[in-house]
Simulated assay, not measured.
Amino acid sequence: MGTARERLLDAAAKRFYDDGVNATGIDTITAEAGVAKKSLYNNFSSKTDLVSAYIDARHAEWLDLHRSRSTQASTEVGRVLSVFDAYIDHANDAYGNGFRGCGLLNAAAEFPAGAPAREAVRAHKEQVEQILAEGLARLTDEQNAREIAEHFSFLLEGAVARAGLDGTPARLERARGIAATMLATL
């Protein structure tokens, strides 16, 4: 069943993804987690703190997916494509109301520019692009690697947005194919 903190984070992740951060109240989260409201405040100082923990957990979850896929790859090209594979894995996760795109971007869209939640999501996306650049630097020069990483980042974000609208990872799979074709020319 997990600790109260784990149950609260699981409930928040489900509700924030399905209903949105601002539309989800503390009472909904505590009811779904099966804990008293006091347990929430024993584990998180505020809803803002819970949102921050949710974003951190989603980031760590994606990094774990990527690490697993990267470890399985046998080539440098495969390691670059493992970023796409991690996005595909994420899209294939079981979602109660279906896949709706990147949970981090969905959450960030609810906050004003400069808000800590948006900054945390921006940092995640920058780290993904950095992972791409580091992998690409093993295949081409550093300048070209940064440029391709930015292109792949745009490709990924567009594909995840469209996949979220479609409710299927097909667009992400297509994006992976496009990236593989581009990598074959290096």
Rank of each mutant, 00 (worst) to 15 (best):
R122C: 08
G78M: 14
D166P: 00
L165R: 13
A94H: 14
I131V: 15
G78Q: 10
A73T: 10
N106M: 14
I131A: 04
R138Y: 13
F99I: 07
A109M: 13
T71M: 05
I148H: 03
L104S: 03
P169K: 11
S153C: 08
H90Y: 08
A133I: 07
L105W: 03
I131T: 11
E129W: 00
L165K: 12
A117F: 04
L165N: 09
A115M: 13
Y87V: 07
A117S: 04
A161Q: 05
E126C: 04
G78C: 10
E147A: 13
V160D: 12
A107H: 02
L172N: 02
G167D: 02
L136W: 02
T75W: 09
F152M: 01
A149N: 01
A159G: 07
G164I: 07
A159L: 13
Y95D: 13
F152S: 01
E126L: 11
N97M: 13
K125L: 11
F99M: 08
Q130S: 12
V80N: 00
Y95H: 15
P112V: 05
A120P: 04
C102E: 10
T75R: 02
A161W: 08
N92H: 06
L132G: 07
G98L: 06
E150W: 11
F111K: 09
A109I: 11
F111E: 09
I88E: 09
C102N: 11
F111Q: 03
R118M: 08
N106W: 03
R79A: 03
S153Y: 09
D93T: 02
V80R: 01
E110N: 00
A117H: 06
V128W: 04
E157N: 05
R146K: 09
Y87E: 15
A170T: 14
K125Q: 09
V160L: 10
C102F: 02
K125T: 09
T168G: 00
R79G: 03
A145H: 01
A120L: 08
F111H: 09
I148T: 06
E119L: 13
A145C: 07
L105G: 08
E157C: 03
L139H: 00
Q72W: 08
Q143D: 10
G167V: 11
T71W: 11
L81W: 00
A120S: 03
N97P: 15
G78R: 12
T140L: 11
Q130M: 06
A108G: 05
A86H: 05
F152V: 05
E119T: 11
E147M: 09
Q130H: 02
H151Y: 12
A149D: 00
V160S: 08
E147H: 09
E150T: 14
A123T: 11
F154Q: 06
Q130P: 02
D141Q: 02
A115K: 08
P116D: 14
A109G: 15
G101I: 10
T168R: 14
Q143E: 09
Y87S: 12
A109C: 11
R100P: 05
D93G: 01
L139E: 01
E129R: 15
P169R: 12
F152W: 06
V80W: 07
E173Y: 10
A94Y: 15
L156M: 04
H151R: 15
P112K: 06
V121D: 14
P112M: 07
D93K: 14
R138C: 10
T140Q: 14
G158W: 13
L155Q: 06
G78T: 13
A115Y: 14
A73Y: 13
A117I: 05
G158V: 14
